[in-house]
């Protein structure tokens, strides 16, 4: 790993948080660049060429959402939002615009590092094999079959597409709208009732205790996270 350090661009205006991120992430062997405004961030995008961006939404030069939008015009680089506001709407908007994940302040560094690793893994996985694996759950895209603890899982076609979408995007925060659009199609974005029903069904099939899910996790007011 030491040769191949991942580069992270941190855009955050609070000095203490900057320091905190610097210290904790350096410890986990990331190469960092820290800046306080979107403008600087944009120039570092080119010069520093990071593998991942940590973005604070409340920046002095405008809302971070616009930054996400701008980045997504030319790059698929993983973006993790660091938000001090627990406004679900803002998070949902950023995710819908293309951010990969988010953490809400105050956060534990362990949690943040886990998110970063997950996002990086996800970014790399794109070109890899047709065999997806999350925990004890396996999806063979060629054979179109799921296995849980090596036992075949019987799913309806819609459950299959839903779980497939979750597996393909494991570790990412997915908004309701994103899931509905990708699995059910355009026009279903707001039909959260059907999503609730299917998630409930799916949990009964894949979770050991559906009342305390560990795989398919709800993010209140935002959506779901898988894996």
């Amino acid at each position: 790993m030491s040769q191949l350090k991942y580069k992270i661009l941190i855009i955050e205006d609070d000095k203490q948080i900057q320091k905190l991120l610097e210290v904790s992430l350096e410890e986990h062997a990331f190469l960092l660049k820290v800046c306080g405004t979107q403008k600087e961030g944009m120039s570092h995008m080119v010069q520093f060429n990071p593998d991942l961006i940590l973005l604070d939404l409340g920046l002095p030069d405008g809302n971070g959402r616009l930054f996400v939008q701008k980045i997504r015009e030319f790059s698929n680089i993983p973006i993790i939002i660091v938000s001090a506001r627990n406004s679900e709407q803002e998070i949902v908007d950023s995710l819908n615009l293309g951010a990969d994940d988010y953490v809400v302040k105050p956060f534990f560094t362990g949690e943040l590092v886990a998110r970063i690793n997950s996002a990086l893994r996800h970014a790399l996985k794109k070109e890899s094999t047709p065999l997806l694996k999350v925990g004890t759950l396996e999806l063979d895209l060629e054979k179109r079959e799921f296995k849980l603890n090596d036992d075949a899982l019987h799913l309806t076609p819609l459950e299959f597409s839903l779980l497939k979408f979750f597996m393909q995007n494991s570790g990412k925060a997915l908004t309701h709208a994103q899931i509905l659009k990708n699995v059910w199609g355009v026009g279903y974005q707001n039909d959260t009732k059907i999503l609730r029903v299917f998630v409930n069904q799916l949990r009964k099939k894949i979770e050991t205790d559906p009342n305390r899910p560990t795989l398919l996790i709800t993010i209140s007011g935002v959506g779901y996270r898988f894996g």
Binding site: V23, A84, F107, T109
Partner: peptide, 18 residues
């Protein structure tokens, strides 16, 4: 207020947890 209060709290919690 929520931003200004949470941010220092975030650094406290983050650093202590480190």
């Amino acid at each position: 207020i929520s931003h200004d209060l949470r941010t220092p709290l975030a650094s406290i919690l983050g650093m202590v947890s480190m």
